[in-house]
Design a protein around this nucleic acid. Sequence first.
RNA 1: GGCUCGGUAGCUCAGCGGUAGAGCAGGUGACUCUUAAUCACUUGGUCCAAGGUUCGAAUCCUUGCCGGGCCA
Length: 498
Amino acid sequence: MRKESLGSPIPMEDESELLALRRARLDTWRELGIDPFGEAYPGAEGCRQVIENYADDRPVRIAGRLISKREMGKNVFAHIQDETGKLQVYAQVQGLGDKFAFWKLLDIGDFIGGEGTLFTTKTGEKTVRLSDLRILSKSLRPIPSQWYGLSDVEQRYRQRYVDLIVSEDARRVLLLRSRIVCEVRRFFEAKEFTEVETPMMQTVAGGAAARPFVTKHNALGIDLYMRIAPELYLKRLLVGGFTKVFEINRNFRNEGISRRHNPEFTMLEAYWAYADFEEMSRLVEELITSVAQKVMGTLQVGGRAASEDGIVAALPPIDLTAPWPRKRYHDLVKTAAGEDWFTITHQERRERCAALGVEISPAMEDFEVTNQIFEKLVEAKTRNPLFVTHLPKELVPLARQNTADPSVVDVFELIIGGQEVAPGYSELNNPVVQRQRLEAQAGEEQQNLDEDFLAALEYGMPPAGGIGIGIDRLVMTLTGAESIRDVILFPLLKPKPA
RNA sequence: GGCUCGGUAGCUCAGCGGUAGAGCAGGUGACUCUUAAUCACUUGGUCCAAGGUUCGAAUCCUUGCCGGGCCA
């Protein structure tokens, strides 16, 4: 019964007492000549607005969802809630007249509208004394307890709308996400970048190494791939003469789901002609600090403040104060694994991994063993922002090689809170080298080569810097959310069997 | 994919071989400044599913489904 009630419509003859009672109230409203799914109710102030613009006896018009009710015979206190917050309303028999009887028919969860004047209760809460009350929409299902909330994570994600009704924290984080995206756009606009939209359905899924989702175009009779990255199209725009472009949109990767991975996720990519990875690192630093300051109001982020839901910081806050350190990959590995790391033998490195508690598999190449050291001993332990620069070229095959040291590439990886938040490159614009790299990457599957992209590069792409920022992870970092599902409104879950 | 934890009333949870429980929500009644309102009475369950063990299974075993965490 419990699971049945989650998503599927409940058969009338089988419904629980709670649902039957609410359904029966529909008829009672209709007998009163009132449509319980009423018409528009324009002109209501937001709950927070009412409180912020408080003045004794000021007339107000309000609307929201009824979330609590305290009936005391001939008067009632209740709270309504909207996107902006909660507001207490108060009703007395002599104030509402016949409409006072509506309280008997109202259930927690119903949408109501009303008019009245403001006053302050003897305990100091700003409250609306109602002179008019109407039902705007009937709720036929009980909402979870206001006090205990919804702690069943599965139900929170499957029925986010219920989570949003009940959880202050879910509302806070998801609204912050929207504000963060908004401020990112404003930042780029102020820097005179042009926002563009490039194909989400592509004939070749390029720009990253990931398994794509495949779909079919019926009229053209071809397979299309949901994009795994917008990179190759944004670079075509550099060829076409755009100098500063960015895109914020969804990428799709047909891979596992975890605390940090959702099959569709939001990516920001930006390309800047004539810039390099160092210029891009300054751009990212300024972007993230200014967004944090504007949205969170502080550069100390991620430490989770105690909330209504009792969630408290598990880790100390992250300090985003700029400038952020830049350190070379080789130097970081040497600090973590020993100054002699790059001079000792293959066998000695494996022994040292064991001594340092870093797990490796026998099949790993040397650079992979080194990267395990980096990931476990540097990346995972880095809390405050760190730009790791000059990665070995094997790890980043599509970036430009360093002029002085061709074994490394001109890139950075920005690490915050133990995870990679943003890579940045000096982009490869040599079409001959790019073709070699892409051919090597495609291996046997040469049909996966994006010939049109290579043709574009042959027309000439200016030197450019590029960055990618996983928006979901950025939001996690700034809000302190521990799962990507907490920053995505409707994360993907396997459907329940019927 | 591997390991591990979980799924009991609308919600939050207890019960872990011997009649299915609590708080809140809901229902009835009382109550004109409550705010987790209070007081009295009270309804509500295919214990995720299917097999098995047992005189007896929510509880033990097996398999499956869904979810969380860790690992790959």
